[in-house]
């Protein structure tokens, strides 16, 4: 395989986390990879699928496949849920017999979440980062359970120079985002978010690191509302840092 990476920027990444996307390019180029960004990408369709709108998912998914199928190299996203959706669901949405099936299978074999790509494909844990701060890590559900990445993100953080990794109580408990869940049942979502924010604030960390844009939106909003000085950051931003 060529050392090319197709940037899967994701709808949340594009609209709310531009700096994270720029940092993703920085880190990948630092590791000697050539980045490309397929222009026609929009959204992989996950929000529709998880909301029960499976028939509405096919259109966006088809568009996504049309854009990414002709590309070469690895497809990397700053999100576990998006990568997992493409890998796991696209072959189901386009089963054998459909014209898109071959493309879906091919894509599934080369789409990765960022920390997964670094540790499992490149075999890299040290990416030359320096970030001398006290950091705690929230384990996003799709990264942890969907992709089975329990230790990998933390190994990447531990390899960052000067970084002190502090354990987060209830690290693996959901932050309450859950996509539409946060909008359908706001009281429960808030209770879950408040609990997560309380744990973060009690951890003694200066920075909370999250690997998932959805969680990051939720936790960042919660910390802001709580008036906390703790900085919410995406894992990629820490890995790009050279402070």
């Amino acid at each position: 395989m060529t050392k090319k990476v197709q940037l899967f920027i994701t709808c949340l990444g594009e609209n709310f986390f531009s700096p994270v996307l720029r940092d993703m390019v920085t880190v990948l180029e630092r590791l000697g990879l050539q980045c490309e960004m397929p222009e026609g990408q929009t959204c992989c369709g996950q929000p529709f699928y998880n909301s029960g709108l499976q028939s509405q998912t096919v259109g966006p998914a088809r568009q996504w496949l049309k854009v990414f199928a002709p590309t070469e190299g690895y497809i990397v996203a700053p999100s576990g849920s998006c990568a997992e959706f493409v890998r796991h669901r696209y072959p189901e949405l386009f089963p054998p017999g459909t014209p898109e099936h071959a493309a879906a299978e091919d894509i599934a074999g080369r789409t990765f979440e960022f920390s997964e790509f670094l540790t499992k494909v490149l075999g890299a844990t040290d990416v030359g980062a320096r970030f001398p701060h006290k950091v705690t890590y929230h384990a996003s559900c799709h990264i942890l359970r969907g992709l089975g990445l329990r230790e990998e993100p933390k190994r990447l953080l531990q390899a960052v120079r000067g970084l002190e990794l502090i354990p987060l109580p209830e690290e693996e408990t959901c932050c309450g985002f859950g996509g539409i869940f946060s909008v359908i049942y706001p009281e429960v979502s808030r209770a879950m978010m408040d609990a997560k924010v309380r744990h973060i604030m009690a951890s003694g960390a200066e920075v909370v690191v999250v690997g998932e844009p959805g969680c990051l939106m939720n936790i960042a909003g919660g910390l802001h509302k709580a008036g906390s000085p703790i900085r919410p950051m995406h894992l990629i931003q820490v890995l790009a840092a050279q402070e």
């Binding site: 920027i9 946060s182 808030r190 909003g221 802001h224």
Partner: peptide, 12 residues
Amino acid sequence: LARPFPAFAADF
């Protein structure tokens, strides 16, 4: 109701 929404900032 639960927390502020981030501002739209697509410029990548």
